[in-house]
Computed example of a mutant assay.
Amino acid sequence: MRRGRARLRTVALIGIDGSGKTTQAHRLADALTAAGRPAAYRRNASGRRWLGRLAHRLGLPDAQRLVGRDGVLAVESVLRWLAIAVALLSCLLTGRTAVMDRYSACQYVSIRAHGGHRWERLARAGYRLFPTPQVTFLLAVDPAVAYQRIEERGTDHESMGWLTAADTAYRTLPEYPSFVLVDAGRSAEEVTEQIQAHLATWLPDDVHPDPSRGSSEGSAPTAVPQPAPPPAPPAAPAQERAGRGDGASLLVQARP
């Protein structure tokens, strides 16, 4: 649970909708807890989905028609700020590692994808109070794959335009070089292995992923011990080889 002398206090998982953040955040929190390092899953939602549902109930196509673009960004920024503040305070009081499903970078992305860049400066001023997570995983996935996943789960809907804009926004954030990129286009099990492999120095040996399967960049697989070779068969008693003129070999039994 420690890397050097630093304790793993906060891990964040970010990415566009449909990248698998919630699934992987739950799995990571469970893995840490099972290893004897209590962790808490925290979902830092912005309320955008809730606003969208409210708009639909009122007969409006989306949240922007309900409160306007600036209204959506204001509500999102405030609700996510409160969610992160509560999550950090709770984990501070309980001593648990905070596994964050979304973090401040997600709000900056939402602002950029909505085209409200002037809001980003205000948001960053407010979110500056929060510590930077020790590890931030960016679950990178093709927007087309993310769109298909969202449609299959059937609980909400996102347009390809929004997913593409959000994907571009993540890659243009000034924090982007500090993110740990995870190929979220793979199966959920493979993504879990990538995440846990990167956290290998924080996790006990018994929860490391199988090194024979994929691992994330920068983490060397653990060596697998090879079985000992079988013992050599005993040599034949007192046998000599004698050559024949035609090149073939002949076994000759030595007389006692």
Rank of each mutant, 00 (worst) to 15 (best):
A29P: 06
S215Y: 06
R42C: 13
P143M: 12
T192H: 09
A87E: 06
A146H: 05
H26W: 08
R255V: 14
E158K: 08
E175N: 09
D156Y: 11
R3F: 10
E240D: 12
S19Y: 02
E76I: 01
D205F: 07
R244T: 15
V109K: 00
T222S: 07
L139V: 13
A83T: 06
C91Y: 00
Y41L: 15
A29Y: 02
V109D: 01
S19Q: 05
A63D: 07
G59L: 03
L250F: 11
G71K: 06
L89Y: 11
R53E: 15
T94Y: 07
A166M: 11
R80G: 03
R186E: 15
V72M: 06
R53N: 13
A235N: 07
G115E: 13
H117R: 15
E76Y: 00
R213A: 11
H208N: 09
A223E: 09
Q194A: 05
A34L: 10
P237Y: 06
G245T: 14
A105W: 13
G161W: 07
E240V: 15
Y147E: 15
A220C: 08
L54H: 05
R57T: 10
N44W: 05
A188D: 10
A87I: 06
L66M: 06
Y103W: 10
I14E: 13
M100A: 14
Q253I: 06
D70W: 01
V252S: 02
R37W: 08
Y103Q: 07
A25D: 07
G185S: 08
R37T: 07
T164I: 09
E190W: 04
R43T: 02
R149L: 03
S46A: 13
I16F: 00
G214Q: 13
A166W: 02
G214L: 15
Y41A: 02
A31S: 07
Y176W: 14
T201W: 12
R57Y: 03
L251E: 08
L139S: 07
L54R: 10
T192Y: 01
A29M: 05
L88F: 05
R186N: 10
D62N: 14
L173F: 11
R128W: 14
R3T: 11
S104P: 03
E158R: 12
G59N: 02
P230M: 08
R241H: 05
A248L: 14
G116K: 02
R255S: 14
P204R: 00
M160I: 15
G15M: 05
N44P: 09
A228W: 02
R186Q: 15
D206A: 11
P133N: 09
A12E: 03
L251N: 01
L122I: 14
H114Y: 15
L28A: 01
I111G: 01
S90Y: 10
A144G: 07
C106W: 02
L122Q: 12
R48P: 00
P221N: 01
R80E: 14
A25E: 07
A125I: 12
P225Q: 04
A242P: 01
L203A: 03
Q134S: 14
A169Y: 04
A105F: 13
G116N: 04
L79S: 09
R49F: 05
E158C: 10
T94H: 08
L199V: 11
M1W: 09
R171W: 10
V109L: 02
R118A: 15
P230T: 08
T94D: 13
R43D: 09
A35I: 00
